[in-house]
Every structure is written in C-alpha cells, then in structure tokens.
Design a protein around this nucleic acid. Structure first.
Lengths: 223, 223
DNA sequence: CATTTAAAATGAGTCATACTCATCACTATA
DNA sequence: TATAGTGATGAGTATGACTCATTTTAAATG
C-alpha cells in the first residue's frame, strides 16, 4: 500500500536522523563518521545519501529538528494563565536547562549556520524559537507591565545572549543549573517597567524626593 | 648567527600564521586548504607541519593570537583616567565593533574550543580578555559606584553574552555598529548602583514616598 | 676557504573518509 | 507470474590532511 510505503520511508528517515543526532552528539561534527551513522541506523552508507544530500545537510536536519522540539518544549513549559513575569521566568529556566542538557547539540548549531558557500544565515527554526519570547514580551507591553518604548529585539539579545553565555560558563565549570542566573536576569527586567513619575535614573530623583520630604517633615514637626 | 636564525624562524612562523588567518577568515575552517595556506605563506605544505602539528593546532594558534591582540586593543581603548561608567562604555563599544569587524574569526573561535578528544575547554586567551572587564567592575565596586553584593561573573555573562548575541543579530542584518545597543546595555548597569535608602524595587520606593506623604497629610489635617 | 654536520625545507606518496554509481532487491500493479 | 519502477547496496573514486625519505641551507670547525 502507498500509505504504508510512505510511512516506511518516513520511519527510515527518522531512524537515520536519530542515529545522526546521537553520533554528532557523541563525537562532534568532525568526529562523526557517515559510516557509523549508517551502521547505527542499520542501513548501507549509500542509503543515507538518498535521504540527505551530504553530511552538512544531515547536520542541518539534526539541528533543525532539535530547535523545533525545543520550541514545542518551551511552549509547553510556560503556564497559560500566568502573569508575564512568571512566564518569562519559566521560559528562562527552560531555556537555560535545555542549553545545559543538550550542550553538545547547541554547540553544533553554529556549524549548521555556516554553509560552505559563505553568507552566514540565521536558521529558520531558531527564528521560530525566539518568537516565543517575543510573544510574551509583547503581551507584557500590551498589559502595561512593560514600558511601551522598549525595543523588543534589544531585550531579546540580552535575554538569549545572557542565558547562552551563562550556560557556557556553567557547563565549563560544573555542568549544573544555577537558579541565581535566572533571578539575576529577571531582576534586570525590572528596568523595563513603566515608571510612573520618574525617568531613567530613579536613584537620583527619589533621593531628591526623599530629601524634600524630610525638609517638609522637619518643618512640620516644629509646630 | 644564532640570533638571526631564530628571528628568521619566528618570521616564518608569523608568515604562516598570517596566511592561515587570511584563509580561515575567507573560506572558513572546512573550506580552508592546508595547501592554500602553504602557498600563500610561500612555503611547501610539509613546512607548515614543522611549525604546527596539524590543522587544528594551527587554528588554535590563529584564534589565540586574535584574542591576544583583542586584549591589547581593549586595554588601549579604555581611557586611563575616566570614570568607571565611561570605561565600561568604551569597552562595550570596542568589543561590539571588534565582533562585527572580525565576525568570521570570532565564529571560528568556537571551533578552536572543541578539540577532537572531547572535553570542551575555555581558551586561556579569552580568560585573559575578560579580565579587562573584571578589572573595571572591581574598581567600580571599590569606588562604591557599584553595589558590593553583586556577583561579577553574572554581570560578565550579561555583558559579553548580550554583546555577542547583538553582534550576531547586527551582522545577520546589515553589518553595522549600532550605538543603541551600547546605550541599552549601559542602562542595565544602573541596576547595580548601590541604593542609598532602599532595596531593589523602585516600586517599593514610591510606596515609601506615598507613606511619607500620608504621614504629612495626616499631620497637616490636624491643623 | 673547504669540509663536515646538523637543522630546516621539500613535495611526492600514503591514508582516511565523504561521496558516487553500476548493480541488485523488493514491492506493487497488470 | 511477469514486469516496471523505486529503493537499497557497497565497492570504487576523489579529495585533502598528513608523512617521510630526500634535498637544501646554514652554522661550525680546521
């Protein structure tokens, strides 16, 4: 049956992809042997090339699937009804944990970015992934929890940049998740709250206010 | 003369390193041919292997030198007498500009990090490079410009993580330096200022102000 | 200056491995 | 059961990193 045939082919493609993910993860891109991937997928070496044009395209498929799964996981990790802050916290935790758990595959992602024929491109699936963040931030702005004049793309760079760098630092040390990183990041986001009465530098202004209040109170106490 | 001989060898090593930097930059790690590097350095292919054990070690040398130069440049870029904030601004600008200008080499850095025999390591020269940041922050703490209870390593991750991610975003768009990124980052550092009278959340501050105002109003109403 | 000796350079040859392609096997339809 | 056509195979090819026997260069010695 055509239906069964198609399923067989997809199953085989999936098997090859799984084998490739494992081998790339274990041995890295350069260490991975196409022969080993074929062996694990229980197919001949030539068969792999029926499904993927070359090693790099196979790598791209592995990375692509990884980020697609990550997107699913992220969406599942944030609780529907929660407030914006809570959701950001959940996304940050999920992201950091994933980066640590699948460090090998994440490292490999940069390899997929550069195709031999030069111009560095952004992977569509990563674009998709960061949309999750953008969605939450946009909701935060709509709900007036965040100032309307922030640039989401800049904050996105802070968010993902910090987490990526932190993950690298953590893995190079002891490989464990550190909630302090999340707390610290979330504290930064307080900067984006809409300020009712002041501009940027709340320190100076509030101290001025406090001084003024002190003067008033001192005066009053004289009565 | 032994002196001259030694210089000749070092000059040749430098020539090979320069050729390698160029070829790696143009063609990427996988695209770079050892034969091409040798040709550009005007030596035989075998000669390259007298100076560097293999392609990966040559790559490491290229990356190592790049970051060493970057450290020199960073130190030169920050003005000795300036205040901490100014210095951070200068370092951030220099770093972002460098990441954009030498994007190719920076991308290649991650390749140098993973040696075939597994465990990912941090490159000594990058360690050295981030010390520049640490030094400025420490001075900031000593001068009470920053709160003493901050963890420098966390802020370092924010600093470099954000800049690295921003650089990637910028390069993938239009390749140009954007001062907004720096301003935004510097704004975040306001979070680390020592607060004179209050804790973290400026929201709490305003509530304190409201309480004080209430006290005043209460007092006033007594007249 | 000639000779010896050691170091440095060379590039043709080796080897590992990504990729190809002529051949074979299997499945579905007539 | 025959046949067509799609999918699978793995021996063979091409490429490029790396080696090493040989040659060249330069320093040391008399």
């Amino acid at each position: 049956m055509a239906e069964t045939q198609r399923q067989r082919l997809e199953a085989r493609e999936e098997t090859i992809l799984a084998a490739a993910t494992a081998v790339f993860g274990e041995s890295g891109v350069d260490g991975a042997r196409m022969a080993e991937i074929a062996r694990r997928a229980d197919v001949a070496e030539g068969t792999v090339y029926l499904y993927y044009k070359n090693k790099h395209e196979l790598l791209e498929a592995v990375v692509d699937r990884f980020w697609r799964e990550l997107t699913k996981g992220a969406i599942a990790a944030i609780s529907e009804g929660a407030n914006v802050n809570q959701q950001l916290h959940e996304l940050a935790s999920y992201h950091l944990q994933s980066l640590i758990d699948d460090f090998k595959i994440v490292e490999i992602t940069s390899r997929a970015r550069m195709r031999h024929g030069e111009p560095v491109r952004q992977l569509p699936q990563i674009r998709e992934y960061v949309r999750v963040f953008d969605g939450i931030m946009q909701r935060g702005i709509d709900l007036r929890e965040f100032s309307a004049d922030i640039a989401i793309w800049q904050i996105r760079d802070v968010f993902y940049g910090t987490l990526e760098h932190s993950a690298r630092t953590l893995v190079l040390r002891d490989q464990v998740f550190d909630p302090l990183v999340i707390d610290h990041l979330m504290r930064l986001f307080e900067q984006y709250r809409p300020s009712l009465e002041t501009d940027k530098t709340s320190g100076l202004q509030s101290s001025e206010i406090m001084q003024a209040l002190s003067r008033i109170e001192t005066k009053l106490s004289q009565f």
